[in-house]
């Protein structure tokens, strides 16, 4: 492993109650991810990739095992500590963009900075930087319904990246995009990964995304099937 680990997963198991029984989504997962990795969980629906991403993102907790993200044990975090971890260190990119429809592009990207209490002038500079990374400085006053799908996802990337997080989690980020837009988005993320040394973790079964990954963790029925690392 060429990067120091920022995510350490040991014997992770996750079960969900289903009536009187329970459904095990993840079994015995042990993985490490270092800083600056561009990796993804690959597998069919139900393989457990989104559940794993949610646990790494402190949106869910392990049933057993240990998950350390940036030194924080996910299972032991209070709701407030988990929120703080997400606020300060994690960025999320969703399949369906999930932008705030009534707010402008600028305001959507600015929102994470408001939670971090940056001064107005600092916020403006950081938002403009983030929009420049994704090539949307001419759309700052537009609202999401006025943008194309590709533009919306670029806004979502700017929102995830504006606070320069250590880790970005992207769940099927190209699922709603055509091929051209998908490549455009992925190239932007590769560029940000290289320039800012941000770790990107994907949950995907899209070949276009898989093609860009430098580490591919294949999941099948909640277990690791393969873990492949490719040179830069």
């Amino acid at each position: 492993m060429e990067h120091p680990p920022i995510i350490q997963i040991e014997h992770l198991t996750k079960s969900f109650p289903m009536g009187k029984a329970s459904f095990t989504a993840l079994t015995g997962i042990s993985l490490n991810f270092g800083k600056g990795e561009f990796a993804g969980f690959i597998g069919p629906s139900g393989s457990g990739k989104t559940t794993l991403l949610n646990i790494i993102g402190s949106l869910d907790v392990p049933t057993s095992g240990e998950v350390l993200v940036l030194g924080n044990s996910i299972g032991g975090l209070t709701a407030r500590q988990a929120a703080r971890l997400r606020k300060e260190n994690l960025g999320f990119i969703f399949q369906s963009y999930n932008l705030l429809a009534v707010h402008t592009v600028f305001e959507n990207v600015e929102f994470p900075l408001l939670l971090l209490n940056y001064a107005a002038s600092e916020r403006r500079r950081m938002v403009m930087d983030a929009l420049e990374w994704v090539g949307l400085t001419d759309k700052i006053k537009s609202k999401p319904p006025q943008l194309s799908g590709g533009e919306c996802q670029r806004v979502a990337i700017a929102r995830a990246m504006v606070k320069k997080p250590s880790l970005v989690l992207a769940d099927e980020p190209t699922a709603n995009l055509d091929a051209a837009n998908s490549h455009n988005i992925l190239q932007t993320m590769v560029k940000l990964n290289r320039e800012l040394n941000t770790t990107f973790l994907f949950a995907t079964h899209d070949d276009k995304v898989i093609g860009y990954l430098r580490r591919k963790v294949y999941l099948l029925d909640g277990k690791i099937d393969k873990d492949e690392v490719f040179p830069n």
């Binding site: 993102g57 949106l59 709701a79 407030r80 929120a83 703080r84 971890l85 997400r86 606020k87 300060e88 994690l90 999320f92 969703f94 999930n98 932008l99 705030l100 929102f111 994470p112 939670l115 929102r159």
Partner: peptide, 15 residues
């Protein structure tokens, strides 16, 4: 729900 989910994911506390 969507908006609240995004806000939670971004790191806003439930409170």
């Amino acid at each position: 729900y969507g908006e609240i989910g995004v806000r939670l994911a971004i790191g806003e506390e439930k409170g």
